[in-house]
Design a protein around this nucleic acid. Sequence first.
DNA 1: GGCCAGGACACCA
DNA 2: TGGTGTCATGGC
Length: 226
Amino acid sequence: MIRQALLDIYQRLMAAYGPQYWWPAEEPFEVMAGAILTQSASWLNVEKAIANLKAAGALSPEALRRLPLPVLAEIVHPCGYYNAKAQKLKSLAHWLGEHYDDDLGQLFASDVDFLRGQLLSLHGIGPETADSIILYAAHQPIFVVDAYTRRILRRIGLAPEGESYGACQALFMDNLPSDVRLFNEYHALLVRLGKSVCRRRPLCAQCCLNDICRCPVQLDSSRKVN
DNA sequence: GGCCAGGACACCA
DNA sequence: TGGTGTCATGGC
């Protein structure tokens, strides 16, 4: 029932938008840094910050450790919350060096639950950031839930009670095959659709999910900041 | 000039 | 345990 609905939605999104080929990064550590930098920021601004990191030769744990915090903050300035994000990148870089000798292969070879626990123990890495790293950098099967996912689930009447991160994640993981490629494209497609879904209106007439949109609510409560 | 964007955390009741 | 404030830039 739910499984069929989720697969139907996936097929509609894929037919409408095609494969998204996420994550837009050249190597795993870039995914990790990008996952932190994109927290509550537009990807356009994140791209600028990542370009700055590349230009400064700072897109590696070792380089980040050497960089003075104020300099790093200036480099990631375009994507907002620059002081907080600079500190988060520093914490990640130091942790990778101390515990894994900067060997991402060793980190990513861990069992999913252990890996998730490790990532969540770090300052600045919450559920969505950890799961983005696990799926898009470690290539292990876990479903990423973000504000877009919750908003779309609400529109089509599939949002679990309370819309907690875990409940939304379980909705997908309990009803879909545990497949990295499927989880990868599904989340990317939800983001692709979400970018065109207004917070204040139901799905528009052109939306590929319009015929199953059940949401009478005009206002979105998923966003808490500002 | 206000709204919004691929969150996380500290603090408080 | 849940609600609220803070962190902040840049495009539209």
